[in-house]
Nucleic acid binder design. Structure first.
Length: 450
RNA sequence: GUGGGUGUAGCGUAGCUGGUUAGCGCGUCAGAUUGUGGUUCUGAAGAUCGAGGGUUCGAAUCCCUUCACCCACCCCA
């Protein structure tokens, strides 16, 4: 039988052990930070009935979703974590306490062309707050504050969370009598950074059939930039001409105020009237986060307020606000920039026990004792040459090796070698754990509690 | 989905105006050193040149087909 070449599908990330350890570390930070704000962990199926995921119907989702038949079932892979959440909340409404705050880290799937920093299977780390009937604006300010804290905890510095409000855009376009084309216009305006104002104006007039006055009114609107206070002040000039716009401006102003109180510096947070992206279910505040040094990779975290997502599954009004970190993309960018692996121990364990005798039981006893002390211990039982055993520890980056030969066993001692310094000491077996603990703590390596 | 580019040992690559044993680096394995790794030295293994077909005395090299991957667009985390 011909052997087939092993390969991994395009757009699917598969990591080696060391980077995988880094990825897990990032997820730990996310879980810890989300818990800090009172979010409860949640998991939902990767597969859902197609009618659930496509309830909203149409649009880009329909084109990009992985959908297939199994028997008579019409199934789809989830393309985000928010739509499944809406289903979950509608389904378990009676058993949940509102506002319902949950975080979820899981893989999602999008059948589009893979590219640098763009995957077909990727992790999203979501936090959402779902209200019963109503949901206070405070939540919309807290979400980016959490993101700020999360990214900071991961060691990121050069990122910016940009905020806008769909009501402001929709209200403004309504003033220009362009309400029906709001979506297309937002998409055109979104290209400002990429192709410049002239091309955008051209696109507005030629592709969307707007008048010259309308196009320049839109471009003038996007030119409202500066510090957050300036932008908000400039927006006040448009007040009084659209109820929707006024509501959006009130919300954006409130969010901006709260964010300052949450301790998010203005360097990391900006009101930006050009952002409008994200899925089309957003109805109010929208967020988008980019790395300042790598804008070309796109948003690594975005979300917003959605008032009507659950309407396909329930008659109840269940407004929500949430945000999604593109973990796989974030990890990819960090890895590419060499920001990962800085001084982090990615070894699978802290010590490798090397039995040098035919009888393995003394080594087994030592390994068991070390584990009882919370030291991550691996027992190496392969009949290899001594140098091969040491080389194994070296390649995996295991910091300590514990040698147990005839002489040591007879004397009730063991040899503990620090592979990083090459230093080796012989200590009573009972003291080995304390010795390794001390060395690990000095290095700041995470040690499991006994 | 549309347009462009690239496919040579596990990985990164040279060779590409056709010319006979496809070269190098990293990694792997072995030895120097059978209780001392990471450094160094020596040696070895490892490639149906993405696949299929065609042109030719002769194809990694030229032509066709196909597949895969990458980039751009679309859209998005």
């Amino acid at each position: 039988m011909a052997m087939m070449k092993p390969h991994t599908l395009s757009g699917f990330m598969e990591l080696l052990p060391a980077p995988q350890a880094q990825m897990e570390r990032m997820m730990e930070i996310l879980r810890r930070t989300f818990s800090l704000y009172g979010f409860t962990p949640l998991d939902t199926p990767i597969l859902e009935a197609s009618e659930v995921l496509l309830a909203k119907g149409g649009g880009e989702t329909e084109k990009q979703i992985y959908r297939f038949q199994k028997g008579d079932s019409d199934l789809s892979l989830r393309f985000d974590l928010t739509v499944p959440l809406a289903k979950y909340v509608a389904l378990h409404y009676g058993d949940l306490t509102f506002p319902f705050r949950r975080y979820q880290i899981g893989k999602v799937y999008r059948g589009e062309r893979a590219q640098r920093g763009r995957f077909r299977e990727f992790y999203q780390a979501d936090i959402d707050v779902i209200g019963d009937g109503k949901l206070d604006i405070l939540n919309e300010a807290e979400i980016p504050a959490i993101i700020y804290r999360t990214f900071t905890a991961m060691g990121l510095r050069r990122f910016q969370i940009r905020v806008n409000n769909r009501k402001i855009l929709n209200g403004f376009y309504a003033m220009q009598h362009l309400g029906a084309q709001a979506g297309d216009i937002m998409r055109a305006v979104d290209k400002l950074d990429k192709i410049g104002p002239e091309k955008v104006s051209e696109s507005l007039r030629e592709d969307l059939g707007l008048s010259g006055e309308q196009a320049s009114a839109i471009l003038d609107f996007t030119k409202i930039t500066g510090c957050n206070a300036d932008v908000l002040a400039a927006l006040e000039c448009y007040r009084g001409r659209s109820d929707v716009f006024d509501a959006g401006l009130d919300e954006l102003t409130a969010v901006t105020r709260c964010l300052a109180a949450f301790g998010v510096p203005e360097t990391h947070f900006a009101v930006d009237l050009t952002i409008a992206r994200g899925l089309d279910y957003y109805t109010g505040t929208v967020y988008e986060t980019t790395m300042l040094d790598h804008p070309e990779i796109g948003s690594i975290c975005s979300g917003g307020r959605y008032d009507n997502l659950a309407e396909y599954y329930t008659d109840r009004q269940l407004p929500g606000v949430g945000i999604s970190i593109g973990l796989t993309r974030l990890f990819y960018v960090l890895g590419e920039q060499g920001y990962l692996n800085a001084g982090l121990n990615t070894a699978p364990c802290d010590v490798l026990v090397l039995p040098m005798t035919a009888d393995l039981t003394p080594a087994i006893a030592v390994a068991t004792a070390l584990r009882a002390e919370g030291i991550r211990t691996q027992l190496y039982g392969e009949q290899k040459k001594f140098k091969a055993k040491l080389s194994y520890a070296d390649k995996l980056g295991i910091p300590y090796v514990l040698l147990l030969g005839e002489d040591e066993i007879a004397a009730g001692v063991c040899s503990v070698k620090d592979l990083r310094t090459g230093e080796q000491v012989t200590v009573p077996i009972g003291e080995a754990a304390a010795r390794i603990h001390a060395g690990l703590k000095a290095d700041g390596t995470v040690v499991l509690e006994p």
